[in-house]
């Protein structure tokens, strides 16, 4: 018994170190972004203020962040809408056996594990050969979908695996058509999961960099703008921007998680 206790404390210590490794760097830039106006890129902290957080919203010498931010929001929303629609439809298709399902399944997996530079290069080559200009809302959108769609699809498959088909059978026996069954029975039941998947998809798109980097065209999304800044910004404004955008994505994830658990609890309470 004593031996087990020792291994527990060793592993606990290891786990805490790991969490520190995961969050430590992030915490340092949070702290450095709260410096006074004469703050620098390294410790010690010089003063304490919200000066640099405010600077993010001002016109910058190196460009401004509002436009890329709006672009990333629009792109994220579009990616979310397409991903949800396509993945719900496809995962419903997979509830029934059909010829060719294995091929389609492996294509989805491939989209997840092909090195992302190939997706970016491939879309870039297609647009180049066709003579189309690359843009965040065309080639960039496609690049994002190759990343969000397989993840959403796999989550949706899991959700439908646990879905009780007797609800639909009951609706059908009572004479409901397929679309009616979907809108009145299936959709309300999977809605909390859709909310979660939707927010995950949005954050994935909002933070995506590698697949978009070669095909975003002239106007950058926010991660690309930040990447561009890393070489020529020497003030804590960079850290402030990092802090704000990290808080933004992290809160979306937390909202998704808590909304999902709350809705599930409420539904269980009803049943």
């Amino acid at each position: 018994m004593q031996k087990r206790a020792l291994s527990f404390y060793l592993l606990l210590a290891f786990f805490c170190l790991f969490v520190l490794f995961l969050y430590g760097p992030m915490i340092t830039i949070f702290m450095l972004s709260l410096q006074g106006p004469d703050g620098a890129l390294t410790f010690p902290m010089r003063g304490l203020s919200f000066y640099w957080l405010g600077q993010v919203f001002q016109e910058q010498r190196v460009g401004n962040f509002i436009e890329p931010f709006v672009r990333s929001l629009l792109l994220g929303a579009t990616v979310m809408a397409i991903t949800i629609t396509a993945s719900v439809l496809a995962s419903m298709g997979f509830r029934q056996r059909f010829k060719g399902s294995t091929v389609i399944f492996y294509m989805t997996i491939a989209s997840l594990i092909v090195p992302s530079i190939l997706v970016s290069l491939g879309i870039g080559v297609v647009f180049q050969v066709m003579g189309w200009p690359t843009n965040w809302f065309s080639s960039g959108l496609g690049a994002h979908l190759t990343w969000t769609l397989p993840i959403a699809f796999l989550i949706m498959l899991g959700i439908f695996n646990r879905f009780d088909p007797s609800y639909e059978e009951a609706a059908r026996d009572l004479g409901a058509t397929d679309p009616k069954t979907f809108w009145e029975i299936v959709l309300p039941l999977i809605a909390p999961s859709l909310l979660g998947v939707g927010l995950l998809t949005f954050t994935l798109s909002y933070d995506e960099f590698t697949r978009t980097s070669l095909v975003s065209g002239q106007n950058n999304t926010l991660p690309l703008e930040i990447f561009g800044m890393t070489t020529n910004v020497t003030s804590p404004a960079l850290y402030a921007l990092g802090t704000l955008t990290t808080i933004f994505s992290a809160s979306l994830i937390l909202i998704a998680y808590f909304a999902y658990t709350a809705v599930v609890k409420r539904q269980r309470g009803k049943a």
């Binding site: 992030m26 830039i29 450095l32 390294t42 991660p223 990092g242 990290t246 992290a250």
Partner: peptide, 18 residues
């Protein structure tokens, strides 16, 4: 453990600099 994965890779790398 999962939350950092959903945030920007670029920011996560920049944060090693200081």
């Amino acid at each position: 453990c999962t939350i950092p994965f959903w945030t920007s890779n670029i920011i996560r790398m920049i944060s090693w600099v200081p």
